[in-house]
Design a protein around this nucleic acid. Structure first.
Lengths: 246, 246
DNA sequence: ATAATAGTGTCTCTCAGACACTATGAG
DNA sequence: CTCATAGTGTCTGAGAGACACTATTAT
């Protein structure tokens, strides 16, 4: 069969939706915006928008990320261009059920972004129209997100949970310089479990290339001053960090 | 920002492309078809086609799979509806670079299918227009696939290679009843390495729920008769099978 | 002083990798 | 017989989990 006949094909709208995850006060949170129009008017939804003509999918996701958060994305392999102001961005999955939008046929290419805590939502500058919400309460049945965004969020959270097992991606949730304890609290928040601080310390400092000493110390967590580290070049964790009770 | 304005959006064509993998005579192979029209006329490409109006993305991929191979797909969680005639099918990634098709804006939702060896290509019944090719030679630079299909194939192969580490997906390459040695040869072909038969045997038979005895034995590999097994209910392998030299 | 967090050392148990050895068929 | 593959047992070393213990700050 020939791949297609360019003169006859059904037209689709293509959008990108973003699952932006961060860790705020010991909880995994995601960015949601309030819909101003029908359908699902007034309901919370994931940020997103059209892919423009001549725009690549990843570029559209990066543009939306800047518009919604001010965060500049960098590709998985590259280091952050501006230290402390970069976010990890990767394609998640594509959602195209025929009736997922009641008005027309829309295919959405969802992307997953991981960011440190710093930025406050600034969609329209209105705190009532955008906020960080704990994923725990969004995935409950109380007030579901618009469209199929609940499913997209669940898929994004599961991707993040599994990927920090075997990669250094958890450092994307941290500021440029961070302590072992802060990194451990990221794992604990994302997985929702408690990890042994001693074993965690031995594991991450003993994996070559995972962490590199940044030189200083900090007491911002209280207690004995902790060494500061930067993310090392190693992107693959072998052997992986083990998620308890799986 | 509002997700979109339904009156003004650039139109896209949406297709599905298939990376169909199987193991033939100790080599990981993929299904390719010869293009009959411009662009890339006469070049080999991945099978694929338009998503129809009112058709879900996964349904379009399953339809293309039946058209190209006669294989019926089943969802990851479910057992094969017809024993021996099912293939694993899952979404891989979406490719939408603006110039990936010179004629118009096409977004392709690539899918990955894993199938046992049995079927012969039957696209148009013409052996010259469809064939199983070892991925090794397709990923070399000799005669690249049309469009960005070389990249799609590489991504699909990498997905398969990593996923059989921590899941029971390798059984999707096997007939409904298979021996431990046949399963081992699947791992060896997909990873391109040699595995110790004794340690492999101990690992897979010692993992609860991975394999269930089917009752009989076979000597189709020569040597001492081997027990036949079916894939068990366990889909997640914990601890995972380790890929050597990583 | 106490509380809090950082960091080290030590024990045990599981498991991967290496490999000797036995079992059972085909020729 | 030989050869091929199936299957079991045993040793060793790496590493995860549990947890005692010390170190260094704030209050």
């Amino acid at each position: 069969m020939s791949p297609y006949d360019p003169s006859a094909f059904p037209p689709f709208a293509v959008t990108v939706d973003l699952v932006v995850l961060t860790v705020r006060s010991h909880a995994l949170c995601t960015l949601i915006v309030r819909r101003g129009e029908q359908p699902y008017q007034g309901r919370w939804a994931l940020p997103g928008g059209f892919v423009r003509e001549g725009e690549d999918l990843g570029a559209a996701a990066a543009r939306e990320l800047v518009e919604e958060t001010g965060l500049r994305a960098h590709d998985p392999g590259d280091p952050p261009p501006l230290p402390g102001n970069g976010a990890h961005l990767e394609q998640l999955a594509t959602y195209g059920a025929p009736a997922r939008d009641p008005r027309m046929r829309v295919v959405s290419v969802a992307h997953l972004a991981l960011a440190p805590d710093l930025p406050a939502p600034r969609a329209g500058g209105d705190a009532n129209s955008a906020r960080w919400a704990p994923v725990e309460e969004l995935l409950g049945e109380a007030e579901p997100l618009a469209f199929d965004h609940g499913q997209i969020l669940a898929d994004g959270v599961e991707r993040a949970r599994s990927k920090i097992e075997y990669s250094s991606l958890a450092t994307a949730f941290c500021p440029p310089e961070f302590t072992v304890g802060e990194l451990r609290r990221v794992y604990e928040a994302v997985w929702g479990v408690a990890l042994d601080p001693r074993n965690f310390h031995r594991k991450v400092t003993g994996t070559p290339g995972f962490l590199v000493p940044a030189g200083g110390t900090t007491t911002r967590q209280g207690g004995r001053p902790a060494q500061l580290f930067r993310a090392g070049g190693a992107t693959l964790l072998n052997p992986p960090m083990l998620r308890p009770e799986v």
